[in-house]
Simulated assay, not measured.
Amino acid sequence: MCSSTTLSVQPTCENQDTRSVEKETDRHVRQLVAFYVHFVAFLAVNAMLVGINLATSPSVFWAIWPISG
């Protein structure tokens, strides 16, 4: 259990708190990186589909169906 004294604002088990904060921060950063990797892949694939659509049949915009899911 962490304890704090009247002279110290920080708890005495600072290493445990720091490790848990670092672990949580690392997890959050990994989740953000994964989100942006998937987002960029989504944009790239859909841009390619729009390009194919415009090159093959510009009168019908069929690329909206895969984009919308």
Rank of each mutant, 00 (worst) to 15 (best):
P66E: 02
Y36F: 14
Y36W: 11
T12F: 00
V21Y: 07
I64V: 09
L54G: 05
L49K: 03
E22M: 11
Y36K: 08
Q31C: 01
A34H: 05
M48L: 15
N46Y: 01
E24K: 10
A55H: 11
A41Y: 01
N53P: 01
G51T: 12
T12I: 01
A34I: 00
S57H: 13
N53S: 15
W62F: 02
S20F: 06
P58F: 05
D17V: 11
G51D: 02
S20W: 02
H28V: 09
V21K: 09
H38R: 14
T25N: 10
W65V: 07
P11I: 01
V21C: 09
Q16S: 07
V45P: 00
S57L: 14
Q16M: 06
V33W: 01
A55N: 08
S57D: 14
V33L: 07
S20Q: 14
A47D: 05
H28P: 00
L49Q: 04
W62G: 04
T56Q: 07
V37D: 11
V60E: 09
V40Q: 12
A47I: 11
Q16R: 11
C13G: 07
A63P: 00
A34K: 12
L49R: 04
V40R: 14
P58E: 07
L43T: 11
H28R: 10
A63S: 12
E14R: 09
L54T: 15
K23Q: 14
R19W: 02
T12M: 01
K23V: 08
F42R: 13
D17C: 12
E14Y: 05
W65Y: 06
V60L: 12
N46R: 02
C13Q: 08
E24F: 04
S57E: 13
D17N: 13
N53Q: 11
P11E: 05
P11M: 02
E22L: 14
W65Q: 03
E22A: 15
F35M: 02
P66M: 01
Q16W: 03
V21E: 07
Q31R: 09
Q31D: 05
A55C: 12
T18N: 10
R30K: 15
L54M: 13
D26Q: 12
L49E: 01
V45E: 03
A41N: 09
S20K: 11
A47F: 10
P11N: 06
Q16T: 10
T25G: 04
N15D: 10
S20Y: 05
A63W: 00
R27Y: 03
F35T: 05
